[in-house]
C-alpha cells in the first residue's frame, strides 16, 4: 500500500517544476538565436507543459483538483517548485545551462520512475522516455558545442554554470516524506538521483574546458 500523501508530494514537486520551466522556456518562441533552434526549443517547452499536464492528471485521479484549476489558480506560496525553474530567462546561455542541468536530472528521475510502485506514474515515465532522450541529446550537443567554441561562448557558459549549479542542486531537496517515498518504492530518492546526476553532468563537462565546483561543497538554493 503506497502512502498517497508522499506520492502526491513528489508529483506536485515534479509537475510544478515542469510547468514553470515550460513557461520560462516558451518565452523564447519567436525570439531564439536562430530559427531552427527557436523551433527545437519551443517543442521542448511544449513537452514540458504537456508532461506537467499528465502529472496533474495523475494527481487528479488521486483526488486532487482539476488540472487547469490546480495548475493555474493556485497562489504562489502553494507551489512546490524549485527556485531553479522560476528564475527569469536572461541570455541564451542561461536558459541553455538551466535546460541542461534540469533535463539531465529529469531524464534520470523518470528513468528511475519506470519502476515506480504507482502504476500510472511508471507508465508515464515509460511513455515519455523518447521525449527526454531528445531533450538530453539536445542539451549535451549544445553544451559541447558552445562550451568549446569561442572565448565569449565559453565564458558565458561558465558564468551561467557558476550561477546555476547551487540552484540545480536545490532541485534535489528531499521531500518531508522522503523515507516513506523510498520505502514504498515510489522513487529511489533525491540522494540517489543527485549522485547519478552529478556523474552525468561530469561526463558532458569533460568534453569541454568548463569548470565545475566540487558538488559536495556547494550550498544548494
Amino acid at each position: 500500500m503506497t502512502n498517497t500523501e508522499a506520492l502526491k508530494e513528489l508529483i506536485y514537486k515534479m509537475a510544478d517544476d515542469q510547468l514553470i520551466l515550460g513557461h520560462r522556456n516558451s518565452e523564447w518562441t519567436g525570439f531564439g538565436p536562430l530559427l531552427e533552434e527557436d523551433i527545437a526549443f519551443s517543442s521542448m517547452a511544449q513537452d514540458k507543459v504537456g508532461q506537467s499536464y499528465a502529472l496533474y492528471q495523475i494527481l487528479n485521479d488521486l483526488g486532487e483538483g482539476d488540472p487547469d484549476t490546480v495548475a493555474f489558480m493556485r497562489n504562489a506560496d502553494q507551489f512546490h517548485n524549485s527556485q531553479l525553474v522560476e528564475l527569469p530567462n536572461g541570455e541564451y546561455d542561461f536558459s541553455l545551462v538551466r535546460h541542461f542541468l534540469f533535463d539531465t536530472a529529469e531524464a534520470i528521475r523518470f528513468q528511475m520512475l519506470t519502476n515506480c510502485s504507482h502504476e500510472p506514474l511508471a507508465q508515464l515515465a515509460n511513455k515519455i522516455k523518447g521525449e527526454l532522450r531528445y531533450h538530453t541529446m539536445h542539451a549535451d550537443i549544445w553544451i559541447k558545442q558552445l562550451g568549446r567554441a569561442t572565448e565569449e561562448s565559453v565564458s558565458k557558459l561558465q558564468d551561467s554554470l557558476d550561477r546555476l549549479i547551487p540552484y540545480a542542486i536545490g532541485v534535489f531537496e528531499p521531500s518531508p516524506m522522503e523515507d516513506q517515498i523510498i520505502e514504498d518504492k515510489i522513487f529511489e530518492g533525491e540522494g540517489k538521483l543527485r549522485q547519478q546526476w552529478e556523474e552525468a553532468i561530469l561526463v558532458v563537462k569533460s568534453k569541454t574546458p568548463l569548470n565545475l565546483p566540487y558538488f559536495s561543497l556547494v550550498k544548494p538554493v
Binding site: H23, S26, G30, S42, S43, A45, Q46, P67, D68
Partner: peptide, 23 residues
C-alpha cells in the same frame, strides 16, 4: 498571449501554433 493562454489545451495549442509560424 503564450504565457497567459487560458488552460493547458489552449496553451499547448498556441505554443505549437506560434512555433509553426517560426517554422
Amino acid at each position: 498571449w503564450i504565457t497567459r493562454a487560458p488552460g493547458f489545451k489552449r496553451k499547448l495549442a498556441l505554443m505549437a501554433k506560434v512555433q509553426d509560424e517560426v517554422g
